[in-house]
Amino acid sequence: MENLNDLYATARDEFEIAAEETEKKTVYAADDREAAQEALQTLKDAFEKAVKEGDPEVGKEIQSRVGQRIRELENAVKAMEEMAMED
């Protein structure tokens, strides 16, 4: 669970940096969005592994605690990508 929290914090930080750079339309925006996507994918992979390989009760707890945050972050990254495409 601690590893998932760390990965979530990293993905969230990468998203915030990418969102700021995208909003400002800097030359770094595309690379920052890619880094945010990669961090999100790493988080999702670790989440799926933790849910599948762990104890079923622990898996349910992980899904309820982390699953919603991952979906929210995933939607935010999608919205940021759509915003970037509009420009």
Results as ranks from 00 to 15, higher is better:
L73K: 01
M1E: 13
E81F: 01
V66F: 02
E72R: 13
E34N: 06
E21M: 12
N75V: 09
E21T: 12
A79M: 04
A39N: 07
K25D: 15
Q41A: 15
D31E: 14
T26V: 04
E34Y: 02
R12S: 07
L40G: 07
D87R: 03
K44F: 02
V27L: 08
E74D: 07
E82Y: 05
A84F: 02
M80N: 02
T26A: 03
D32T: 11
E61H: 07
E2G: 02
D13M: 10
R12G: 01
D55Q: 06
P56R: 02
G59W: 06
E16T: 13
P56I: 12
A30W: 08
V66P: 06
F15N: 04
V77E: 06
L73W: 04
A19Y: 04
G54F: 03
A19W: 03
R69D: 13
D31H: 07
D55V: 04
A9Q: 11
F15W: 07
M83L: 11
N75L: 11
K24T: 15
E21S: 10
D45Y: 00
T42C: 07
Q68S: 12
M85E: 15
T42W: 00
M83K: 11
A11H: 07
L40W: 00
E34L: 10
Q63A: 06
K49A: 05
L43A: 10
A11T: 10
K78H: 03
E61L: 09
M85D: 13
L7E: 10
L73Y: 02
L73F: 01
D45F: 00
T42Y: 00
D13Y: 01
E23W: 03
M1N: 10
K44C: 05
E20W: 00
V58K: 13
E61Q: 15
D55W: 01
K52C: 01
E82A: 08
A35F: 03
G67I: 08
V77T: 10
Q63N: 08
V66K: 04
S64H: 09
R33N: 14
T26F: 01
N5S: 14
M1G: 12
R71E: 15
T26S: 03
D32M: 08
A39F: 00
E81L: 14
K52G: 00
T42M: 10
A19F: 02
E23P: 05
A76E: 11
D13N: 05
Q41L: 15
M80H: 00
Q68V: 15
V66D: 09
V66H: 01
E74A: 07
L43F: 08
